[in-house]
């Protein structure tokens, strides 16, 4: 995760939320989607995250990257949602919707089927493995940043990364995936 030095505590609450929306809004929203895999829910959770960031701005100490802090709030909110009974009810409903999407997706032209398959497989991994893959390969986080964002030790991140790769290989019917 690279970038220019960020203004942190100097920002007012309103400036901070504007800054976060402008700079990290897209990344945060896409990350939320990888957890909940539903656009409407992504919209709702994103709003909740913004409100939480706005309310908690005073608690931001500036000792971590602003993006990491905001992402941590988003990820925690996603996990809360996934644990909620509401999610389980929605899941049943969404499964029907997804079938329709799959059918239409079949008709679409896919430029790179191989990478699409891997991306799909990653999005179908269990949350704890999915998040390390997404944060690594989609958000370019280091393992230390993932540890900071998800609140687990670095050793656990490493273990999960290895396990995620194993699961991914299984999902790809044993085909080797080269990691750089």
């Amino acid at each position: 995760m690279t970038g220019n030095p960020e203004p942190h505590k100097e920002l007012t609450r309103d400036q901070a939320i504007e800054y976060i929306m402008n700079h990290y809004g897209e990344a945060i929203k896409r990350t939320i989607y990888t957890y909940v895999k539903n656009f409407h829910t992504t919209d709702d959770i994103f709003q909740e995250v913004l409100i939480q960031i706005y309310r908690k701005w005073d608690q931001f100490q500036g000792d971590s990257q602003l993006k990491t802090w905001a992402m941590r709030i988003a990820i925690n909110r996603c996990k809360d949602y996934l644990r909620s009974p509401l999610h389980r009810i929605k899941l049943v409903k969404d499964q029907w919707v997804d079938k329709g999407d799959e059918q239409s997706a079949e008709k679409a032209v896919i430029e790179d089927e191989h990478w699409g398959e891997i991306a799909q497989a990653i999005l179908n991994l269990p949350v704890k493995y999915r998040e390390v893959m997404i944060l690594t390969y989609h958000q370019n986080y280091t393992q230390h940043e993932i540890a900071e964002t998800t609140g687990v030790p670095v050793s656990t991140v490493k273990t999960r990364m290895q396990r995620a790769r194993d699961l991914l290989k299984e999902k790809m019917d044993g085909r080797e995936i080269s990691y750089e």
């Binding site: 929203k29 989607y33 790179d112 997404i134």
Partner: peptide, 21 residues
């Protein structure tokens, strides 16, 4: 794993249009 290609593939799965508007 090629990060750029995978990132693009994931983005494609999520949707190419910006989510944040």
């Amino acid at each position: 794993m090629n990060n750029t290609k995978l990132k693009k593939a994931i983005d494609k799965e999520i949707g190419e249009k910006p989510l944040f508007t």
